[in-house]
């Protein structure tokens, strides 16, 4: 009976996403949220920021113990130091951001009207460096992850609010991200949605699959598998490789669009980055 119910919901979402070609980002958000709320009725809405731990009491306890002495603490300290260290010209990161860069991660990525591009927080960090005559940092780990972690830390508790404005350029990037999310790729022929929508809560081997809602809330993440902090695009890279698909470039147009889509789908949830995961 329960199995049957789940199956019906999956079909419901598929058709909602495929049939309504004209679905607005707001329609998608509603469909997405309703789907996960029905699939995981025991998970309070804001708990989706905790990934698999929001749906798996067994592993949650262990994770909560880890979070008491967070493995990302050193990176966070380093991120704060880097964030406040002056560039060669004497200015700091604070000069590039609203509110001195504090408590603003929940508004990223955002659509920039002037350039017609979507700007992620990591891209903004590098743009800040370059406009101050500094070399850009490499995107998947290291200093950029530490700085981003600090900026997320000062944004903890703020509600994700990623707007897709009524501008054809913004809509096109959003649609591109949505397409990538639902497209089967790689030699194993799987989409993000195959694992994180249709099979969220199921196990692939011993691994429970997280719901996609809330995916962006807690990055950068310290993964024990990495032994260090990594950015969201590093995680995307790993998920693509798992299905033997060629990963896109970190901060390239594809992953930026994908992040725009996933972040918009996480609207209404709190920022709780940096996080820790297996």
């Amino acid at each position: 009976m329960k199995k049957l119910l789940t199956a019906t919901l999956v079909i419901g979402l598929c058709s909602a996403f495929t049939a309504q070609v004209q679905a607005t980002p707001e329609d998608d958000l509603k469909t997405f949220r309703t789907y996960y709320e029905k699939r995981f009725p025991n998970t309070p809405f804001n708990d989706f920021i905790n990934g698999v731990y929001s749906i798996d009491p067994a592993s949650r306890e262990q994770w909560e113990e880890i979070e008491e002495f967070p493995p990302y603490e050193l990176s966070l300290d380093n991120g704060k130091k880097l964030f406040n260290a002056p560039f060669a010209n004497g200015k700091t990161y604070a000069s590039c951001f609203e509110n001195g860069g504090e408590g603003i991660a929940n508004r990223y990525p955002f659509f920039d009207k002037a350039s017609g591009k979507v700007i992620t927080l990591e891209a903004a960090i590098n743009a800040c460096r370059e406009s101050n005559g500094e070399k850009p940092l490499s995107y998947k780990k290291g200093a950029i992850a530490d700085i981003s972690a600090y900026m997320h830390y000062t944004s903890r508790g703020n509600i994700i609010n990623v707007i897709v404005p009524d501008d054809p350029r913004a809509q096109a990037i959003y649609e591109e991200g949505k397409k990538i999310f639902f497209a089967k790729r790689g030699q194993l022929n799987m989409s993000c949605a195959d694992c994180h929508v249709h099979n969220s809560g199921n196990k692939i081997r011993a691994d429970l699959l997280s719901p996609a809602i809330g995916h962006t809330s807690h990055f950068p993440v310290y993964r024990s598998a990495w032994g260090e902090l990594g950015t969201l695009h590093r995680r995307y890279d790993g998920c693509n490789k798992q299905v033997r698909a060629k990963p896109y470039k970190a901060q390239g147009p594809e992953y930026t669009a994908l992040e725009y889509f996933e972040a918009h789908m996480s609207n209404g949830l709190e920022i709780n980055g940096p996080g820790s995961r297996k």
């Binding site: 099979n199 199921n202 196990k203 692939i204 081997r205 011993a206 691994d207």
Partner: peptide, 16 residues
């Protein structure tokens, strides 16, 4: 196949 299917004698199968 164990990633997704329980099979007699296979450890830690998935349930997709």
């Amino acid at each position: 196949c164990l990633a997704c299917h329980a099979i007699e004698g296979g450890e830690l199968p998935g349930n997709i």
